[in-house]
Nucleic acid binder design. Sequence first.
DNA 1: AAAGATACTTACTTACCAGTAAGTATACAA
DNA 2: TTGTATACTTACTGGTAAGTAAGTATCTTT
Lengths: 184, 184
Amino acid sequence: MSDTKDKIVTLADHLVRTKGFNAFSYKDIADPMEIKNAAIHYHFPAKADLGICVIDNEIDKFRESVEKWRKLPEDKQLTKLVEVFHRHGTNGFICLMGSLAPDFETFTDPMKAKVQEMGNVIVSWITGCLENGRAGKRFHFEGEAYDRALLIITNLQSSLILSRVLGPSVFNRVSNRILKDLKP
Amino acid sequence: MSDTKDKIVTLADHLVRTKGFNAFSYKDIADPMEIKNAAIHYHFPAKADLGICVIDNEIDKFRESVEKWRKLPEDKQLTKLVEVFHRHGTNGFICLMGSLAPDFETFTDPMKAKVQEMGNVIVSWITGCLENGRAGKRFHFEGEAYDRALLIITNLQSSLILSRVLGPSVFNRVSNRILKDLKP
DNA sequence: AAAGATACTTACTTACCAGTAAGTATACAA
DNA sequence: TTGTATACTTACTGGTAAGTAAGTATCTTT
């Protein structure tokens, strides 16, 4: 990926997380980069193309991260995931799913499919992490691992959103409780 | 409130929950009501005025609901809250906080304050419900009631959002687990 | 050196959006 | 009956959005 294209995607990612997908325009990217909006259209003919690329980037980064954590015990792996969310939160960003899902109905079909893909990748990984962790006595919890994974991802996602409204302590309180509740 | 004004607010509420605040326009309200966009500006000079009214409406409805549940045992009160979220979800709507918070940074100061007010009202109520419920042995949980309230509201909020992406079973799985986990 | 691909800019179109100014119809009150 | 408030419509502005067509500079390949 060329330098310009890469910068466009990075800026778009930040804009989606801070302003929302429908609330930012190509001008918000073109001005700080000192290029014209047509230059962005050269790389991403339609805004949905840029959106899909931002999500694909996120899926790739997520897959790289979990691959790096593969040999850690499951409780450490989950702590790493929490740290990823925390890092986003301290920069004022929220997670991609949290910022995209509210505008979901306004998206094109290919972009909707891409959002769904990202959701499945993340939830599947957490489910596996919890299942393995329970089998290895590193986690204790009731019910299906998939259900617990949904609880955790919804906690992380929404606590970032709520932190913007009620203050940054929200995320710390929520993430600490998630990890404590899973202790055997 | 006049009939027209009331219909505008109701439609705006649905549009915020389905498309997001920045993604809907006065035309989306004017066309189905068969009025002109200037008629909406007569009642709500700026879009933020409409947004604030939608939130105020929601706060009022929430206060009326919890007042109605006042004499129920706390576990039943919490079940009622889950039912409110469930009703929204089955109509394809998400909760106001979930749809407004991602666009938070694009709002005017008065509207930001109103979103914060709504967040505080809901979290305070859940905290009180959990505290009283634990004191009366209807709930069992570790840690501070406020932390637990944050976990629950983030679960409910985000599971509605995720239901749109991953299917409606997400909300049912999450809400069932919330209530089971609190059983003494 | 010519041809072609890449990465843009210039200049534009079409469409929509929030918001406004001025006019109109209706109802009720003095 | 005249006046005034309410609840709009008509007709518009200024701004911004996504997107495009045509041209240009630069580098690479033949």
